[in-house]
Structure formats: structure tokens, C-alpha cells
């Protein structure tokens, strides 16, 4: 006999409308249809919980029931491609972009990007920060030519929506709801917990240039006249985000 292939099993696992393959039985020898549902349920519940823990703010924005239903569609279309569940859900931003029922919430894909970036940051590698006085110790000439290496946990994200404000309000309701408009968010990880920090546009341009390997003077040129260098460097140092000067 040929038996149940794992392809047949998989097809029925992910779709309740695909009949349970023949060849699996309960103790009396009859087909094990309801028992097969244990596996269907385990897979759906396990993957849904993984998405819930990865996207708490998205879940709060759309509600528990809606999130569960959406997760059910997502997990059937995009099952994990690796056993490392800390990577699961990376296609949610593009999924949300094309998901008709959330068309009226155009900021959701960027919020998903922000939550993914927070999770990436949480698991990113460790690196010791430079001493706060190391920058001040550079001669002015050396300072402008220096390049800065940011911590592996640092992420920069730009959105045409106020994603930082929405994130903050939905994780701490005491904080007021948000202004409209584009926002730039820097994620830092001072110790173990990532923090989203709102950046001004000039500061975001500066950080993006630094990430590309520009010198401080090059990055300052990108930031433009409105860049508040002092405030930005203080933030980066306080959040232990600079790990090398080179």
C-alpha cells in the first residue's frame, strides 16, 4: 500500500475543506476525522499565538476577533518557512497592504513593520557601547571625519503615518493620541528591551547617512541646517546605540 504522504497530510492540515486522507484510523478502525482535527487545531492555534505575540499593537488596533480571523487567513497563505518562530510574520506588512478588510486603516502595514523591527532589535546581537566621553575627546578635525558604528539592535524606520504616536498611545493609553503626518522612528535597545524613539526628519536623515557609512560631516550635510546635533548625539549615547568610532 502507498500510505498517507506528507503532502496529502499537509493539504488537509491547512484546509478544513480538504478531506482527511484515507489511511489514518481511530481504535475501531474507522477513519480518524475528528482526531485529525487535533493537528489542524494545534497548527492554527500555535501559529496564531505566534502572530499575536509578534504584533500586539496591530492586534489591539483591529481587535482580538478580527486579528484571529486575519491570522487564520495569513497562516494558510504564508505558513512559516523556518522553525525559528522569532522570524514568523515577516510578510504581514505586504499581506496587510493587499487585505481588503483593512483598506480603511492604511497605516497598518507600517505599524507591522515597526513591530517587526522591534522584534528584530530584541533578538539582535550584543555590542558594548562607546564611553560617552569618547566623542567629546576627539579633536574637532577628527570628529567631523569620524564614522560611527551603530549597535546591531538599532533600526530606523520612516513612515508617512504617525506610527510612533500610534504605537505609544496603544501601549500606554495614558499617553495622548497622536498628531497626523509622517514620522521617523529610531529603535534602540539600551539594555534588553527595544525602545522606539521619535526622530525629527533631519535627525533621521543623519542616522540613515551614518548607517550607510558616511562620516559625521557627511551625515551632518544630509541632516541640513535644522539638525540638532547635540540632542541627537545625547540620545544615541544615552541609549547605548553607538558601539564604535572608526
Amino acid at each position: 500500500m502507498t500510505g498517507v504522504t506528507q503532502s496529502d497530510f499537509r493539504d488537509a492540515l491547512l484546509s478544513a475543506s480538504v478531506p482527511v486522507p484515507d489511511g489514518m484510523t481511530q481504535p475501531d478502525g474507522s477513519p480518524a476525522s475528528r482526531r485529525f482535527n487535533v493537528y489542524r487545531n494545534n497548527v492554527a492555534v500555535g501559529l496564531t499565538e505566534a502572530l499575536e505575540s509578534a504584533f500586539p499593537v496591530i492586534r489591539k488596533l483591529v481587535g482580538d476577533d478580527f486579528f484571529k480571523a486575519m491570522a487564520g487567513i495569513y497562516l494558510r497563505n504564508h505558513p512559516p518557512s523556518s522553525a525559528v518562530m522569532a522570524g514568523y510574520g515577516d510578510r504581514l506588512p505586504s499581506f496587510l497592504k493587499g487585505f481588503e478588510p483593512v483598506r480603511h486603516l492604511p497605516y497598518l502595514p507600517d505599524m507591522a513593520r515597526l513591530e517587526l523591527a522591534m522584534r528584530d532589535s530584541y533578538h539582535a546581537g550584543d555590542a558594548d557601547p562607546i564611553a560617552p566621553e569618547a566623542l567629546a575627546a576627539l579633536s574637532p578635525d577628527r570628529f567631523v571625519r569620524a564614522r560611527l558604528r551603530l549597535a546591531p539592535s538599532v533600526r530606523l524606520l520612516s513612515s508617512r503615518f504617525p506610527v510612533h504616536g500610534i504605537w505609544v498611545h496603544n501601549t500606554d493609553p495614558a499617553r495622548p493620541p497622536v498628531a497626523k503626518g509622517a514620522e521617523d522612528v529610531l529603535i534602540t535597545r539600551p539594555h534588553f528591551d527595544p525602545r522606539p524613539r521619535l526622530l525629527t526628519r533631519p535627525a533621521a536623515r543623519f542616522v540613515a547617512a551614518i548607517q550607510r557609512g558616511a562620516s559625521i560631516s557627511g551625515a551632518m550635510a544630509e541632516g541640513g541646517d535644522e539638525l540638532d546635533m547635540g540632542a541627537l548625539l545625547a540620545l544615541l549615547l544615552t541609549d547605548r546605540a553607538i558601539v564604535d568610532i572608526y
Binding site: G3, Q6, Y39, N42, V43, G46, P79, P80, S81
Partner: peptide
Amino acid sequence: AWSTHGGSYFNDLLPLPYT
């Protein structure tokens, strides 16, 4: 058990026939 097939991971311990 098995948990991966066709490049997809199902996050569950799935059963095998004993042959």
C-alpha cells in the same frame, strides 16, 4: 515526528506511520 514539508514549517509535532 515531522513538522516541515515543502519548505513550510507547521510548528507542531506531526505523526509518522511505523514502516
